[in-house]
């Protein structure tokens, strides 16, 4: 499925492409953070501490105006005080309005984002690729029907449809015991990995169309190849031809699209959680939503998780660009030749 030639192209594109290197470094870093979250997070991301609320990140100080009543010379006076809140190394990225450690929340948020991104993309692939392959392989009526249905799905903006479906359906939440906590390596951390099941299913349901389109295009072109015609004329069954010839040829473009879709779904998930449709509070979008109300007093609550999203998505997009350039699956128009 992955030929030596593919590997060679990947290597050639890798050598002079420092953007690809940045992308892979970012993705690997975020993967490591997500996997080892319980070991890396300094605090339990859910534990609140009101006296430590709204501490600024390192390098910033925040002044707060507070008023208090004081008993001076026998009478009550209202005193206006300016207090300076200094950042501490205890909370390098500051704390939110509940005193939760932002660094720990960002680390745990990576888990949610990547899990939703990966599982949602997988589901979309599992739905979209077979539909696209069948449509492109059989053409005619089957193709027309499936593609008109895909057109209908495309007419709904994925975010709008996702909002409707997640909002209307019950939030299913899947809990998986965290292996690190179970092994006693991080006793103070949340015991379960919380997976927003509905969100995962819905993002898969609203994005499969893209996979169907790409798979269909590949199937349409592969079925015209001489060796496929030969196989068919020798009596190979349709299922055999699809499995042996059409699917392997579609792997490259689907892989590239899949990479880009992980980034798109991370953005979609963060938008859903920002709008209050997340299944878990350990999500970057959810934290940005929280921070929206504290823009004037604690800007970092909304800023920090947003930067995390940007870094993750940039990383994945750079990897996607690298794969696309190296594998040239023809997703971005037809290739031209140089001088």
């Amino acid at each position: 499925m992955v030929s030596p030639r593919t590997i060679r192209n990947l290597k050639r594109e890798w050598r002079n492409n420092w953007l690809a290197k940045i992308g892979v470094a970012l993705v690997v870093a975020i993967l490591l953070v997500a996997v080892f979250a319980p070991l890396l997070a300094p605090y339990n991301p859910r534990s609140q501490s009101l006296e430590d609320s709204r501490l600024p990140p390192m390098g910033f100080t925040e002044t707060e105006n507070s008023t208090s009543s004081q008993f001076v010379n026998g009478s009550v006076q209202v005193v206006s005080e300016r207090t300076t809140v200094n950042a501490t190394w205890d909370h390098p990225l500051g704390t939110n309005q509940l005193g939760q450690d932002m660094l720990s929340r960002v680390i745990y948020g990576a888990r949610t984002s990547l899990l939703v991104g990966a599982l949602g993309t997988l589901l979309a692939m599992l739905i979209g690729v077979p539909i696209g392959l069948v449509a492109g392989y059989y053409r005619g009526r089957v193709d027309d029907a499936l593609m008109r249905f895909a057109d209908v799905m495309l007419a709904f903006p994925s975010l709008v449809l996702a909002v409707a479906l997640v909002g209307l359906w019950q939030q299913a939440v899947w809990r998986i015991p965290d292996p690190f906590v179970a092994a006693g390596l991080a006793p103070s951390m949340p015991p379960d990995i919380v997976l927003p099941g509905t969100v995962i299913v819905v993002v898969g349901l609203v994005t499969w169309v893209w996979f169907a389109r790409v798979a269909r295009g590949e199937a349409l072109s592969v079925r015209e190849e001489e060796y496929v015609k030969a196989a068919r004329s020798l009596g190979a069954s349709d299922a055999f031809v699809i499995r042996k010839h059409v699917l392997p040829n579609s792997v490259t473009p689907i892989l590239v699209l899949g990479t880009i879709q992980v980034a798109a779904i991370i953005l979609l998930e963060s938008a859903l959680s920002y709008l209050g449709f997340s299944g878990t509070s350990l999500s970057w979008g959810f934290d940005i939503n929280q921070g929206r109300d504290y823009l004037a007093t604690a800007w970092w609550i909304a800023t920090v998780p947003g930067l995390a999203i940007v870094l993750a998505v940039i990383g994945i997009n750079l990897v996607g660009d690298w794969l696309r350039d190296a594998l040239d699956p023809g997703l971005g128009g037809e290739g031209g030749s140089g001088a």
């Binding site: 980034a263 953005l267 963060s270 938008a271 920002y274 979008g285 940005i288 921070g291 929206r292 823009l295 004037a296 800007w299 909304a302 800023t303 947003g306 999203i309 940007v310 998505v313 940039i314 997009n317 750079l318």
Partner: peptide
Amino acid sequence: SLLGISTPNFWLGIMLLLVLAV
């Protein structure tokens, strides 16, 4: 353009509000 396609627009909106409005 890389930043533009990688930034969630609601967060960008909040940042614009933070800097240019607040």
